[in-house]
Simulated scan of single mutants.
Amino acid sequence: MEDMIKIHLIDREGTEHELDGPTDMNMNLMELCKVYELPVKGTCGGMALCSTCQVYILSDHGLPEMTEDEENMLDQAFFVKDNSRLGCQLHLSEAMDGLKVQLAPETESNA
C-alpha cells in the first residue's frame, strides 16, 4: 500500500517491533502503538497534557518542530533526553518512513 510507512520501535524490554502505519488517517505515533497493543498509556488522549507516550528518536529523520505545549510537557516529565518527543504529537507522514524510536521508561526500574 502506498499510504503505509514502517516505524521501528524498541519497547521497554529492548525488543524491536516493526510497525506498519497509515499516513492517510491522521494517526499519531501514540495511536499506532496502541493499535499494536504496545505499553503506551496516552493518558491525556493525545493532548500533550501528560508524558505517558514519551519516546526517544533514534534515527535521523526531519520531524516537525515541537510545539510550545509539547516542550512544556517534556520540561515536567521524567527520563527526558535531548531526543525525547511525545508520540501523540508525531502524526504519521511519508517523511517518517523508517523512523526508529524507543519507548521511554515509566519507572526507575525501566530506566
Rank of each mutant, 00 (worst) to 15 (best):
N110C: 14
P22K: 03
M47R: 11
G14L: 05
S84Y: 06
L32A: 08
M73T: 02
M4L: 15
A48N: 09
L9W: 03
C88T: 00
Q89L: 07
A95P: 07
N26C: 07
E94G: 07
E108I: 15
P22D: 09
E13S: 13
G14N: 10
K100H: 15
L86T: 03
V35H: 15
K6A: 03
T67W: 07
P64S: 03
Y36P: 03
C44W: 02
K100E: 15
D24V: 09
F79N: 10
D82M: 13
L86H: 06
E94Q: 11
D75H: 04
S59W: 00
A48F: 08
E13N: 13
F79W: 09
D24L: 08
F79H: 13
V35F: 15
K81A: 15
Q76C: 12
G45H: 02
V55Y: 08
D97E: 11
S51I: 05
D3S: 14
I10A: 12
L19D: 01
A104G: 14
P22E: 10
G62L: 12
R12D: 01
L99M: 12
E94I: 07
K34N: 11
D11E: 05
C33H: 00
T52R: 02
F79S: 08
L9A: 08
P39F: 11
L38D: 06
H8D: 09
R12M: 05
G45E: 05
G14F: 07
L49R: 12
Q102G: 14
N83D: 14
S93T: 11
D11W: 11
L58A: 12
E106V: 14
